[in-house]
């Protein structure tokens, strides 16, 4: 018989390392044509920091995206970034790039003020122009001032910035309480499943997901993180086990034919929604979502299985054998 059920799960996930005490540094060089070189040591593992960093720099300096060159390949050419883990890079590198941009912008304003015969505090950035307050006709493009500074004055504009998280503050040593939170993001999934009580097969019919990004820097990439994370969660729930004869260490999967991860055939219809509850100190309020997207599907599917057949899933992956065994002991009880 095929039985259907629904299950929900709600989670939170921290942005940044639990212990704190880590940094990301960035610096930016303004090219004579008004473009920029951005130097950032954050590793790109597919999540999209290169894109996010250039978007932020473009907005903060009025420099077109396609005139930004990102250098992030080597430790000789970049400042420190502790690493691409702990859902930390958009938050940390985003803030570092903003700080570096602010520094470069201030230098640009100082030179532009000389040219325009005003004080730097009278200047602001509008699109790709530096304009004088109350005198909309008095302005210079970034390209104009960058050319002047580099070619006529011979100066280098180098903006630098970083984001440093203090090590966690001890709140109550006796109770092991320590302030480890940079910010928290939230997520929830509703799973609808169908369980075949004869074969033990579980089919995920639909997943509805909501994730809180704080502020989405790039919806295309954020949606991609959600899709990928949720599907990884489906894999953990229904198929993946790197040590099937645990606790022994025998007969471990040796190929991707043995260690099964989701394929195109395993992706159920999904609907994902992004909500934005800003963090206090992230760039534009952003939070990290890289990891948490993998955490909602498993409990939601497990709970949906209970709803369908009245069997609790206390350990994953949920194999057909497990379902059949559980149904059998349910019948005996």
């Amino acid at each position: 018989m095929k039985k259907r059920g629904k299950g929900v799960a709600l989670i939170y996930y921290p942005t940044g390392m639990a212990g704190g005490g880590d940094t990301t540094q960035a610096f930016v060089k303004i090219k004579p044509d008004g473009g920029a070189d951005l130097f950032l040591g954050s590793c790109e593992i597919g999540q999209g920091i290169k894109t996010v960093a250039c978007q932020i720099l473009s907005d903060e300096l009025g420099i077109p995206y396609d005139q930004i060159v990102l250098h992030n390949s080597s430790t000789d050419d970049t400042g420190i970034c502790t690493g691409t883990f702990a859902s930390r890079v958009t938050y940390f590198a985003g803030n570092a790039v903003r700080a570096a941009a602010a520094d470069a912008r201030q230098q640009l304003f100082e030179y532009a003020a000389l040219e325009l015969g005003v004080t730097p505090s009278e200047l602001s950035l509008q699109d790709n122009k530096i304009v004088v307050a109350n005198e909309p006709n008095k302005s210079m493009t970034i390209a104009e001032i960058a050319g002047k500074v580099n070619w006529t004055m011979g100066k280098l504009i180098l903006g630098k910035g970083n984001f440093w998280k203090e090590p966690g503050r001890i709140i109550d040593a006796e109770n092991g309480q320590i302030d480890v939170i940079t910010t928290l993001a939230y997520g929830a999934t509703l799973a609808e499943v169908e369980v075949d009580t004869e074969t033990g097969q579980v089919e995920v019919l639909k997943l509805t997901n909501v994730f809180d990004t704080g502020k989405t820097i790039n919806p295309l990439l954020a949606e991609g993180q959600i899709d990928g994370g949720v599907v990884m969660g489906i894999g953990s729930t229904l198929m993946e086990n790197a040590n099937p004869y645990y606790p022994t260490d025998n007969l471990k999967p040796k190929t991707l034919g043995d260690y099964i991860i989701p394929t195109t055939m395993d992706v159920p219809p999904m609907q994902s929604f992004i909500v934005e509850y800003p963090s206090a100190n992230g760039p534009y309020g952003a939070k990290g979502i890289g990891e948490m997207t993998a955490n909602t599907a498993s409990p939601a599917i497990a709970n949906a299985i209970y709803d369908a057949i009245g069997v609790w899933i206390n350990d994953i992956p949920v194999t057909p054998e497990k379902i059949l065994k559980a149904l059998e002991s349910q019948n005996m009880a």
């Binding site: 709140i171 109550d172 302030d179 480890v180 939170i181 939230y186 509703l190 994730f211 704080g214 509850y277």
Partner: peptide
Amino acid sequence: LRKGEPTHTGSIPDSVAAIEVMQKLAESA
């Protein structure tokens, strides 16, 4: 968790939205 309430580590999170996320999920589903 509500705003102003501590997590069990003693931290007061800067951003709290578990309830709103659940409401959005119900509405979306």
